[in-house]
Structures are given as C-alpha cells and as structure tokens.
C-alpha cells in the first residue's frame, strides 16, 4: 500500500510536526520509498516467534520505594525558555 498526502498529513499531526501542504507530496514519496523497501520483512516466517523487545534477558531490578534524588527545582527548570517560580510555563490550555 502507498501513503497518500492525507495520510502523511495525519502522521505529521500525530508527530506534532508542522508540515506545509507544499511539502506533503515530496515527503509522501520519500516515506513510500522506505515503506516499500521494508515490505520484504513479509518474506520472513515469524510463526510462533516471540517479538524481541530487549536483548537483555534479565528482569528489571527492584529497589526500596524511597526518595533517592531531588530537592533542586531550580536545576530542573534551569533550561526552560519560560520558567516562573520553579514552574514550566506554557500557553494557556483551558479557556
């Protein structure tokens, strides 16, 4: 199957990247080239194969549920464009 302009616009929206209408055609072409190439994975027999999510077989380690870090809000917000009194500021969301 091929990605059309409308699908590419939808993906761009999901990815929260503004893509001008004039660029959709070319981007669709590039993405289609890649998606057609990966179609060859269909040739591989993956019946009864568990999907591999990690190369590390170990279970995640556990630790006591205790505070081990923190207490420096000014460092946390130090890189924000717009920080007020140790809070991140964003444009108004709720009217």
């Amino acid at each position: 199957m091929s990605l059309d302009k409308a699908t590419v616009a939808k993906i761009a929206h999901l990815a929260r990247i503004k893509v001008p209408d004039s660029d959709l055609e070319q981007l669709a072409g590039e993405l289609n080239t890649i998606m057609h190439w990966v179609e060859m994975l269909g040739e591989v027999d993956t019946q009864n194969v568990e999907p591999m999510t990690s190369v590390v077989a170990a279970n995640l380690r556990r630790r006591p549920d205790a505070v081990t870090d923190g207490g420096y809000p000014e460092k946390v917000v130090a890189n924000a464009t717009d920080a007020t009194e140790n809070f991140f500021s964003v444009p108004k969301v709720v009217e």
Binding site: H13, A15, R16, I17, K18, V19, V77, N79, A80, T81, D82, F88, V90, P91, K92, V93
Partner: peptide, 22 residues
C-alpha cells in the same frame, strides 16, 4: 519547547509544539 531547548511560539500549546518541532 517546554522544558529545554528551542521554543517557537504558536497561537496555542499544540501549535507551539508543531512549530517548535518543525
């Protein structure tokens, strides 16, 4: 565009995200 790095403003939060990432 919220916690670090570049921020490009927009008319609302969503547009700020989209403009920043574009």
């Amino acid at each position: 565009g919220v916690r670090f790095g570049l921020r490009v403003e927009g008319k609302d939060l969503k547009e700020m995200y989209e403009n920043t990432r574009a």
